[in-house]
């Protein structure tokens, strides 16, 4: 089974502040890490490989330094790594990102299964996975809690729905977005890290894609536009309320209904 895992590099913390004058995001440092949710995707792929054999290919789109997430994946046991990097991809929103990833996946050879994380900690949309599925015209399943088995070219999984847990069987190839409850990700192995020190990472640019139309990528390929960013309203009210217990219970009750919490 050939499995592709989509992994993104994200900022170390999501503590960000908006400069009230310039409207620019001030970040605390520029340290980057692997999107924690994607480690669950990678762990799922490694377990499937251990059980059913095959290969695990990690793919990421980002600047050159995003290569680090592939190195980390190598030290966890991934077989191949692809970095999609091109300045023409700068400014991509969900549509442009998912399209570039789908093109990268297409040009990386065949696959049986694509696994994505639940969401990223910076983009935080949980939309890239299903959109990749759409571009590749394969079924996609989100909120995957558990893998039951792979048999007869079908994978059986449990997924989380609002009021139920569904067991579903999906024909391969397909795309899964896995929940963080699926498996505990393994730690990178020191030995593997050493062994894969010089293992190459395949770099793809727009020129490697079948669809080279520059208008489909980066800012041009992004239908959404961020108009402005601003700090959230912080609830800085501090009110002390005294009274009889009836009054106090009544006051809490009316506060709850004003807040639409009951």
């Amino acid at each position: 089974m050939n499995i592709i895992v989509c992994v993104k590099q994200v900022p170390e913390t999501n503590k960000a502040e908006v400069d009230p004058v310039t409207g620019v995001i001030k970040r605390e440092g520029f340290d980057a890490k692997t999107n924690p949710y994607d480690l669950y995707a990678l762990e799922t792929a490694l377990r499937l490989k251990e059980k059913y054999s095959g290969t695990v290919t990690v793919i990421t789109m980002g600047p050159g330094q995003a290569e680090d997430v592939i190195k980390e994946a190598y030290s966890m046991g991934a077989d191949n790594g692809i970095l999609i990097s091109d300045r023409r991809f700068a400014g991509s929103d969900v549509l442009a990102t998912s399209y570039a990833l789908s093109q990268g996946i297409k040009s990386s050879g065949g696959f049986d299964l694509i696994i994505c994380g639940k969401q990223t900690t910076d983009g935080d949309t949980a939309q890239v996975g299903p959109e990749i599925g759409e571009h590749l015209n394969i079924p996609s399943v989100a909120n995957v809690l558990e893998i039951i088995d792979v048999r007869d070219n079908k994978i059986t999984v449990k997924t989380d729905m609002p009021a139920t847990v569904e067991t579903i069987r999906v024909t391969l190839p397909c795309l899964l977005c896995v929940s963080e409850n699926i498996f505990q990700p393994r730690l990178p192995s020191y030995i593997k890290k050493h062994e894969t020190k010089d293992k190459p990472v395949k770099i793809l640019t727009l020129d490697d894609f079948t669809d080279k139309g520059p208008e489909k990528y980066g800012l041009d390929g992004s239908p959404t536009r961020v108009k402005r960013i601003f700090p959230p309203e912080v609830n800085d009210r501090r009110e002390m309320i005294h009274g009889t217990s009836d009054e106090l219970a009544g006051k809490i009750y009316s506060t709850l209904s004003d807040l639409k919490l009951i």
Binding site: N14, K15, V18, T121, D122, D124, P223, R225, P232
Partner: peptide
């Protein structure tokens, strides 16, 4: 909300 709720983003299509 973006960045874990630390900032708000206004987005148009």
């Amino acid at each position: 909300p973006a960045f874990g709720g630390n900032i708000m983003a206004e987005i148009l299509t």
